[in-house]
Nucleic acid binder design. Structure first.
Length: 264
DNA sequence: ATCGGTACCTGCACGC
DNA sequence: TGCGTGCAGGTACCGA
C-alpha cells in the first residue's frame, strides 16, 4: 500500500487522536513484524504518553514524552485502523486511554520498532521530496549515474517515493524511466522536481491512492487512483497523446510509461 | 556506485 | 470447482 501520501494521510488522521494520550496496553500477535521480544516491548510501552506523531518518509514515528520512539513501517500491505475489531491479519493492538489502534498486515512486510532514538537505518535516508529545494535536488541527481527510476525508488536518495508516484512523476515530467540521472539537462531535472511535488501534493489532497486494499484509519479509500495517468493503465491510451501506455520491468518493478511522451 | 537476483509473505485474478 | 501461475503499493542482502 503505502507511499508518502498514504502515510501522511494516516498521520494527519491519527495525530489529533493520539497526541497527549496515554498508552494503556500493547499487544503483539506476530513477532516477525516486531523488532525485539513482544513481552519486553509491550512492557516498555505500557503507561507512556504520546508527545507527537510525525511522518519520516514512509515511516510513521510515534514519539513519547520519555523520548522513546515507536517507528512504524507499513511495508506493502500494512494498515492502521482507529477502532474496530481484530481480524485474521491483525498483528498488533495498541490501546490508548481514548480508543485503540489496530495494526493489520497480511503479508507482514511491515515493521514496528521501539527505540530510544531514530535508528541509523531510518536516520540515514535521503531528504523529504516535499522539502528539498530544486537546486539541491538537481545537484543530487547529477551525482548519480544510474537510471532515474531505480534512483527515485532508492530511499537514501529521497525518502517517501514508491512505485506509483515514481511512474506518475516521470510521466508528468516527460522523462523516460531508464534515462540516466546525471545526464538530465538542468531544466528537465527541475521539471522532475516540480512534477514530484505536484503529484505528491495532489495525492495527499485526495487522501492517497487505493489500488486494491489501501484504506485510511477510518476504513475509507483514497481518491488519487482516479487521477493516475500511467500507473496500472497498461495498453490504455496516454491521456496526453493517446499512444498506448507500455509496461516494462525495471529493477524488478513494473514500470508504466508513455513511449511517445517519455522518449529516451 | 550500481545492477540483477533472491528472499521475505499472503491474497487475488486469471487461464485451463 | 480446483489448481498452477503471475502479480502486487516495500526493503534487505548477496555477489558481480
Amino acid at each position: 500500500m503505502p507511499e508518502l501520501p498514504e502515510v501522511e494521510t494516516i498521520c494527519r488522521a491519527l495525530a489529533p487522536r493520539l497526541e497527549g494520550r496515554r498508552l494503556l496496553e500493547a499487544e503483539f500477535f506476530e513477532r516477525r513484524v516486531l523488532e525485539g521480544p513482544p513481552a519486553r516491548v509491550a512492557a516498555r510501552l505500557r503507561g507512556q504518553t504520546v508527545r507527537t506523531l510525525r511522518r519520516h518518509g514512509k515511516h510513521l514515528l510515534v514519539e513519547f514524552d520519555s523520548g522513546s520512539l515507536l517507528a512504524i513501517h507499513l511495508g506493502m500491505t500494512g494498515h492502521l485502523h482507529w477502532g474496530g475489531e481484530p481480524g485474521p491479519h491483525t498483528r498488533a493492538v495498541l490501546t490508548f486511554d481514548n480508543g485503540r489502534v489496530l495494526y493489520d498486515d497480511p503479508r507482514m512486510f511491515g515493521r514496528l520498532e521501539l527505540c530510544e532514538q531514530l535508528p541509523r537505518r531510518i536516520a540515514r535516508l535521503g531528504p523529504e521530496p516535499l522539502h528539498i529545494p530544486a537546486a539541491e535536488f538537481v545537484e543530487r541527481l547529477h551525482a548519480r549515474r544510474g537510471a532515474i527510476k531505480p534512483l527515485l525508488l532508492n530511499q537514501t536518495f529521497l525518502r517517501g517515493l514508491g512505485n506509483i508516484y515514481t511512474d506518475e512523476a516521470l510521466f508528468r515530467a516527460g522523462i523516460h524511466p531508464r534515462a540516466i540521472a546525471a545526464r538530465l539537462a538542468p531544466d528537465r531535472a527541475r521539471k522532475l522536481h516540480r512534477a514530484i511535488r505536484q503529484v505528491l501534493n495532489a495525492a495527499i489532497a485526495s487522501g492517497g491512492t487505493t489500488i486494491s486494499d489501501y484504506v485510511d484509519t477510518e476504513g475509507q479509500p483514497g481518491g488519487f487512483q482516479f487521477q493516475l495517468q500511467v500507473y496500472g493503465r497498461t495498453g490504455e491510451p496516454c491521456p496526453r497523446c493517446a499512444a498506448p501506455i507500455r509496461r516494462i520491468v525495471i529493477a524488478q518493478r513494473g514500470t508504466h510509461f508513455c513511449p511517445q511522451c517519455q522518449r529516451r
